[in-house]
């Protein structure tokens, strides 16, 4: 039941399916009859990536090929654009990269999924370790093609005093899943796991996160917001496990979504598994529609309904983007949101 194994063996029977509880809302087996041919080697993309304006170095994995390691020495500080590209001729491929941050290192990772092909099947696997006191801000912009199927899984292991701040932005794909697995040691380490999905047409996005608190005094803060229009489907699965002995853990999880059409669907599954004492954990999960009274109020001031809807939706989702620490990345995220909504920039 692994996507990578299915791609590497060409055996569609190995694809995750609705029979796997964790995959029941993002069924790949039922969608894909045959695994596409392996992606050929492809030249570097002609277009620049979504974060190009911020400079820094760039790592590219095109059709699964590219560097397999990024290492920051102790105390090193870097800004890196990491681009996973499915080229126009992409079939099926797996991309793998290991990222290691030395003690006190500081990485701003600008990660993008760029689907140039039409009907590819792409899997990305990231293995990330943070030494004590290291800091990672990871901003993921998933711009998959409408016909693409993309899955990304990041396994992130923190040491004491390390911090992870993550924001995932996506417009979905034919089917798409963005997974983050975090091993949280407590002891002053902090984790923020945010996300925004904005889905239209028949697009599908699944944001799945699992945080396992393994030591005392750890904090996790999560805010995911999404909007599904037309026949789109948004999935949020958030699990926070507080292991035995991980006392004084503080965890907050929020998932809030708007459904803008009768045929759109949102599936949310927040889970807290608590095996320790003296913890403060909370979760909130809401799904609703735009406020008709607010739409009328805006219309009364002269703002036509489509524009008012875009403005209110941008405001709803914008709360998440305000939490991005890197200023340039925050601006790019706001532009991305305004562009996907056709809304005026605040």
């Amino acid at each position: 039941m692994s996507l990578a194994r299915a791609i590497e063996t060409g055996d569609a029977a190995l694809l995750p399916s609705r029979r796997d509880e964790d995959w029941r809302w993002t069924d790949l087996r039922g969608l894909i009859r045959a695994v596409p041919a392996a992606s050929p080697a492809a030249p570097a993309p002609a277009a620049s990536g979504p974060f190009a304006a911020l400079g820094g170095e760039e790592l590219r994995l095109v059709n699964g090929r590219g560097p397999d390691r990024l290492t920051l020495a102790a105390g090193e500080r870097r800004l890196v654009a990491l681009r996973f590209v499915a080229a126009p001729d992409a079939g099926a491929h797996v991309s793998r990269i290991a990222i290691d941050l030395g003690e006190g290192a500081d990485l701003t990772l600008l990660e993008s999924y760029e689907g140039e092909g039409a009907d590819y099947l792409a899997d990305a696997e990231l293995t990330v370790t943070l030494a004590p006191g290291a800091r990672l801000e990871r901003i993921v912009l998933a711009a998959d093609a409408e016909g693409g199927v993309g899955v990304s899984r990041a396994d992130i292991r923190l040491s004491a005093g390390a911090s992870l701040a993550q924001t995932v932005l996506t417009t979905g794909a034919r089917r798409q899943r963005l997974e983050t697995w975090v091993r949280h040691p407590g002891h002053g380490a902090t984790v923020r796991l945010d996300g925004v999905y904005r889905l239209a047409g028949r697009r599908h996005a699944d944001i799945t996160t699992v945080v396992t608190h393994e030591g005392t005094d750890g904090t996790t803060d999560q805010l995911v917001k999404g909007v599904a229009d037309d026949q789109a489907r948004g999935v949020f699965q958030g699990r926070i496990v507080v292991s035995p002995g991980a006392d004084r853990t503080e965890a907050r999880m929020g998932h809030h979504a708007l459904i803008l059409s009768d045929r759109a669907e949102i599936d949310g599954k927040p889970e807290l598994e608590i095996y320790a004492d003296d913890v403060a954990c909370a979760h909130g999960n809401t799904v609703g529609a735009l406020d008709d009274e607010a739409l009328f109020y805006a219309a009364q001031r002269g703002i036509p309904e489509p524009e008012a809807r875009a403005m209110l939706t941008a405001a709803f989702l914008g709360e998440v983007l305000d939490r991005i620490v890197h200023e340039g990345a925050r601006d790019i995220a706001r532009d991305w949101l305004a562009e996907t909504l056709g809304a005026p920039r605040p």
């Binding site: 009274e293 009328f296 219309a299 009364q300 002269g302 403005m311 209110l312 405001a315 914008g318 605040p346």
Partner: peptide, 24 residues
Amino acid sequence: DPSQRAARGVFLSFQYPLEIPGVP
């Protein structure tokens, strides 16, 4: 429609003005 009326010059001061979170 309401926004066209507004553009024609109709303004209603609401008894209970709406709160619009996130929009300055």
